Amino acid sequence: MDNLKVVIVGAGMGGLTTAIAMRQAGYEVEIYDRVSELRPAGAGISLWSNGVKVLNRLKLGKEIAEIGGQMDRMTYVSKSGETLTDFSLHPIVETVGQRPYPVSRTDLQQMLLDAYGADQVQLNSKCVAVEQDADSANAIFEDGRRATGDVVVGADGTHSIIRSHVLGQSVERRYVGYVNWNGLVPASPDLAPKNSWVIYVGDHQRASMMPVGGDRFYFFFDVPLPKGTESQAETYREELAGFFKGWADPVQTLIQRLDPAKTNRVEIHDIEPLPAFARGRVAILGDASHSTAPDLGQGGCQAMEDAWVMSNALLTTNLGVADALKRYEAARKERTADVIRKARERSNMTHGKEPQETQQWYKELEHEDGTTIMDAISRTILKGPLR
């Protein structure tokens, strides 16, 4: 379809990727966000090859390669410091045809803003409702302004307002069962090799370091805790030192080296797979449509896949906007439901939902040569729209 106007609510990773894809498709694009300053949630993201392929198709391959980390190996280590398995990730690259690029979320968002035009994002625009008729759709903002287009895209995150319009009801998020602390530290060999993703495991907890651009590690700590456990930045270091007492020296060094003021603490939630992603001229994508636990590293990648599939659905049908958005929904609903379910299953195994399963996983890692892990990652990547 030609000459569409697309209104996008939300200027995070999914919204910006969608804006770039829609504009490259030849559509007029307006993008809005409720915040007064764009700051990404979280410190880093493991951008696997399916997400990178979307960026390649959007002519951003060179840019993502420049800000991405060089991740050549993957290593699991016991809490006492014994290597359980260590292997090259090169077979994944050979199988799927593209390197992964772990990246700082700030760098990724800036790259997308540069590609779209940061001055073209309309801030201080909190969407409170959506309306539509046979000919147009409107995003309505808190201050009374309205943005009218042929399509309204809800890229407004896990607490999405537009999701409620699409479904006709609100959706409660589900606590997955663990808390994640994450941030960035300078890369250093006393923490981990600079080209390896290193994960320490034990006691149903994890401590991880992954190389990102700028000679830094993206780190995270996972601890199963009851929902609503109180915490504040001033005590992060002491809390982590307690949770990871007796763990190997690099974990202790990381805890001492992190900056609590720049460390994020997140209670991890997901949502049940949704019955619909579109209603008439309105559609949702990214965390609005399939908020998932980060245990497969696929949240951002799925939002990028959404952007590509939606823009192509609009380009390749002449039966109208509603038809195109239903085709987008049909292409994405089961794919993203599968990611939600598998991320939840992996989270349960990793974080001791069934303690015997977690102990068995630790034992299996001692005999793992990387094949099983890489096969699972490759299968997830290759189910995407760009092979």
Rank of each mutant, 00 (worst) to 15 (best):
K79E: 15
A118Q: 15
Q132D: 09
E63Y: 13
V93Y: 07
I162F: 12
G183W: 02
L84G: 09
K79D: 15
G42K: 01
S164R: 15
S78Q: 13
A137R: 12
E66K: 14
Q70C: 07
V130D: 03
G168V: 04
D107K: 12
Q132W: 04
V77A: 04
L47E: 05
L123G: 11
D72S: 10
T95L: 03
V77R: 13
G69W: 03
V153L: 15
L84N: 10
D86K: 04
S164Y: 00
F87M: 06
T85K: 07
E82W: 01
G97K: 05
L113P: 05
D133T: 07
Y178I: 04
V179N: 12
R174W: 01
A65F: 09
Q110S: 14
R163A: 04
D135H: 10
R73E: 14
Y116S: 04
E63C: 10
F141S: 06
N182I: 02
D107V: 01
N138W: 10
S49G: 12
V52Y: 09
G81D: 04
Q109K: 14
V176W: 00
G69Y: 03
Y175Q: 03
D133G: 06
E66Y: 06
M74E: 10
V179D: 12
V130K: 01
Q98P: 06
P91A: 05
T148L: 03
T85F: 06
A134N: 12
A43Q: 02
A115Y: 10
D119I: 02
N50L: 08
K59W: 11
V128N: 01
G177K: 02
E66P: 00
V93W: 09
I45E: 08
V153H: 07
G177D: 02
I161C: 13
Y76P: 07
G61H: 05
S36T: 14
V52T: 14
L167Y: 07
Y178N: 14
Q70G: 00
S78P: 09
G154K: 06
Q169F: 11
R39T: 15
Q169N: 11
R174Y: 03
V54G: 04
S36Y: 10
D143W: 02
V171L: 01
N124L: 06
E172H: 06
T148I: 13
S49M: 11
V128A: 01
T75R: 15
G42Q: 00
I140M: 04
G51F: 11
L60Q: 14
A129W: 02
A139H: 10
I45H: 06
E131Y: 09
Y76W: 15
T75W: 00
D119Y: 03
Q169D: 12
N138Y: 09
M71L: 03
A43F: 01
D119T: 06
G117T: 14
K79Q: 15
A118P: 09
R173P: 06
K62L: 01
Q132M: 05
G42Y: 02
M74K: 08
T85Q: 08
D86Q: 07
G144H: 07
A139Q: 07
